[in-house]
Design a protein around this nucleic acid. Structure first.
Lengths: 344, 344
DNA sequence: TTACTAATTGCTACCGGTAGCATAATGGTC
DNA sequence: GACCATTATGCTACCGGTAGCAATTAGTAA
C-alpha cells in the first residue's frame, strides 16, 4: 500500500484508518471536530506507519514553508549563541532554520536578503547585526510581505519587529566603575564606523563620561574593525603617545585581546598600569589573562525574544501573550582587567 | 494577470510569453530542445516578471527539496568556519542550508538526525564531528536513502561519503618539534573519551612519541572536556605534580587557554618554563599571550571537500570530476608557546 | 416516530511546478 | 508537391497535502 519509495503519505494513513484523507488532515491540524473514536483510529494509523507529513506538499497547499531564516554577516561567537538558542525554540514549533550569510557593508545587501527570503520561500526571517542595522531591510521585507525581526540598536521600526540593545546603562555602569577607580584619561577603540553598534557604543561612552564631567578627546579615539589585528594597531597608537590613557575601552572582546598583547609587549601590566574593558562578554573574555572586565550581552534572552516576536507574527490570532519587551540590557561585569588608576 | 499575492508563477510567465508552461519548464531546466526565438521570449518574460520558481512546488513534483542539512553538536569556531564555506558553495549551486544541532553523547542522536532529514525533506546532509563519528549514522542515512557526507576520523564507510582527518602527520611534526627542543617529559590533556577525535589525537601522540623512544605515562594523561574549565583543572593536575612535564599537548585551543592561565598563576613562564602546544588553530590561538603553537585544521578545504562530495552524489551522471581526495592533513605551526626545554 | 438542527465526515478543486506522451510544425528528399 | 523523419510545443496527469462545501450521520425536541 505504502508509497514506492517507502515514505507513507496521508493517503496511506487514510486508507489504513479507513477514513478519508480530509479527516486525517483534521486530526493532524487538530482544528475542527473529529469524533474521539475516529481520531484514535487515525492517530494509531499515523503511529503504525510512522507518518510525518511532507513539508513541501504542506507548504504548497497552505502557502507556508515552515522554514525560518537567519541572516547575519559573519559567523561570530555572538552569532553562534543566537543560532543555538533560536534553533532550540523554533524546532519545537515545527520550523526548520535556514541560514544565510551576506557581506555587510555592501550596496546590495538589501536585495541579497530579499532574494534569499523569496528564493527559500521563508515564512519569516530573523536578521542579526550588523545587517539588521539597515532600516531599509525592514521596509523591503515588509513590502515583500515577509514577517521579520531585526536584532539591532536602530529603532526606526515597530517594536513588534525589533529586539533592541540598550547600550547606555551598561556603559554608564562600566564608566562609573572606572571613574570610581580614579581614571580620568580614557582611550576608546571603536569598531568600524560603518557599524551602528560601534557608533552607539561610542556615543554611549561619550555620554557616560560627560556625566562625570570628563571629555573624550578625538586623539583618544581610534577606529578599529572589531578584529584582533585592528586592536593591535589601535592599542599601539593609543599606548605609544607621550600621554597615554590610563584606561581603554575596546568596543569588542577581540580587539581587547589585541590591547592585552600590546600592553605585554610594552611591559605594561594590566590592571596595574592600564585598565581595560571590553564589550561582548564572549566566553573568551574569561579565558584571557587577566580576565576581561566586559559588558555581557544576554544572547540567550535576545534569541528568545527575537524568536518569540517572530512566531507571534504567525500566531497573531492565537493566545500567544503579547510580547511587550523590546529592550535588551547588557550587563557590565568587573573582572581582573580593571583596577585603580596608577599612582593612586 | 499576476498571482494575487504578487508572486508570479510559471503560468504567468507562460501567458506573457504566449507559450505553454511546459515550454517554460523546458527553458528553465534547459534540458530538451527549444527554438531559440521561443527561448528568448520566455527568458524575457521571466526577466520582466522577475520570476523565480516556487521551491515547494518544484520540490513536490521533482521529489527534491533543494535543501541541504548541516548537523553538528555545538556551534564552535570550527563549526563556524565550516558553515561559512559550505554556505558559500551550496548557495551557488541553488541549494539552501538548514542547520540542526543535536546533543552528542546521547542514545538517540542517530534517530534525531534521521528524523531531521526526513522532517526537513533534505536532499542531503553533511554531518560534522563529533556526531559524524558515529558510524551508525551513515548506515541509517543510507537506509533512509539520504545522501550524506561524514566529516570524521572514522573510516568505516565508503570514501565517497567521507572527509577524514589524518592526525598522524601533523602530530608527529609537532612531536618532533618538541623533541628537538629537548623535551622528554610530556603531559597530554585529552578531550572527552567519548569523542573519537580525542582518542585519535591521543593515539597519534603516543605513536609519535614512541618513534622517539619516549613513553607517555598514564599519570601524565588527563581527560578534559574540550572546555576552558576542564583545561584549568587538567593543567592544575599536571603542573602541581612534583615531577611536572616540560611540555604539554592540549587536545584543543580552548583547553590550552586554561593551561596558560594556570601557568601564570603558578609563576611558570611559557615557553621558558613550559612549552605548550594545542590543536585546532582557531583564530584565538593567535590572540593568546604567548601565541599558541598549534595544529591548524584546513577548515576551508574540509568544507569544500565535504560539499563537493555531497553534490557529487546528485550529479553522479554529470561531468562532475570524480573526487578522489578524502584525507585532510592539518598542519603544525610553531609559534611562541614552544621553546627549548628548561635548563638546556 | 418524525422533523430538524448540529456534529462529523467525504468529495473535490486547488497550490505551482515536472515530465510522459501526443500533436503540430519544420525540413529534407525524391 | 507529397511523404516521412525530425524537432518543437502543447495537453494532462500527477506530487502530497489543505480547505471550502456538500453529504451523511447523530442528537434532540416535539
Amino acid at each position: 500500500m505504502i508509497n514506492r519509495d517507502g515514505t507513507p503519505t496521508i493517503n496511506d494513513v487514510a486508507a489504513l484508518a479507513g477514513v478519508h484523507k480530509r479527516t486525517v488532515t483534521r486530526v493532524m491540524n487538530s482544528s475542527s471536530k473529529v469524533k474521539a473514536a475516529t481520531r484514535a483510529k487515525v492517530e494509531q494509523a499515523i503511529e503504525v506507519l510512522n507518518f510525518s507529513p511532507n513539508r513541501q506538499a504542506r507548504g504548497l497547499a497552505a502557502k507556508r514553508s515552515f522554514l525560518l531564516g537567519l541572516v547575519y554577516d559573519a559567523p561570530t561567537l555572538f552569532i553562534n549563541d543566537i543560532l543555538k538558542d533560536t534553533l532550540g525554540i523554533i524546532e519545537d514549533e515545527g520550523y526548520e532554520l535556514v541560514v544565510h550569510a551576506c557581506h555587510y557593508p555592501s550596496e546590495n545587501v538589501v536585495k541579497d536578503v530579499t532574494r534569499f527570503v523569496k528564493r527559500a520561500n521563508l515564512d519569516g526571517v530573523i536578521v542579526l547585526p550588523p545587517v539588521a542595522d539597515i532600516a531599509d531591510i525592514g521596509k523591503e521585507l515588509q513590502k515583500a510581505g515577509c514577517p521579520y525581526v531585526r536584532v539591532t540598536s536602530d529603532v526606526s521600526d515597530e517594536t513588534s519587529r525589533l529586539v533592541v540593545t540598550d547600550y547606555l546603562s551598561a556603559i554608564s555602569d562600566m564608566t562609573r566603575h572606572l571613574v570610581e577607580f580614579g581614571h580620568r584619561e580614557f582611550g576608546f577603540i571603536s569598531g568600524p564606523n560603518t557599524h551602528l553598534s560601534s557608533r552607539k557604543r561610542h556615543e554611549a561612552f561619550v555620554q557616560a563620561l560627560s556625566t562625570h564631567g570628563i571629555e573624550l578627546p578625538a586623539e583618544m579615539v581610534v577606529e578599529g574593525a572589531y578584529t584582533f589585528d585592528s586592536g593591535l594597531m589601535a592599542a599601539n597608537q593609543l599606548l605609544s603617545r607621550e600621554r597615554r590613557p590610563t584606561a581603554i575601552f575596546a568596543a569588542n572582546d577581540e580587539m581587547a585581546f589585541g590591547v592585552i598583547k600590546v600592553a605585554n609587549q610594552l611591559g605594561l601590566k594590566i590592571p596595574a598600569d592600564l585598565s581595560l574593558v571590553s564589550f561582548d562578554g564572549t566566553p573568551f573574555s574569561n579565558f584571557a589573562v587577566p580576565t576581561l572586565s566586559t559588558i555581557i550581552r544576554p544572547t540567550g534572552l535576545m534569541a528568545k525574544l527575537a524568536t518569540q516576536k517572530m512566531l507571534a507574527q504567525f500566531n497573531s490570532g492565537s493566545n500567544a501573550t503579547h510580547i511587550s519587551e523590546t529592550m535588551i540590557s547588557p550587563q557590565f561585569e568587573a573582572r581582573e582587567s580593571t583596577g585603580p588608576v596608577p599612582g593612586r
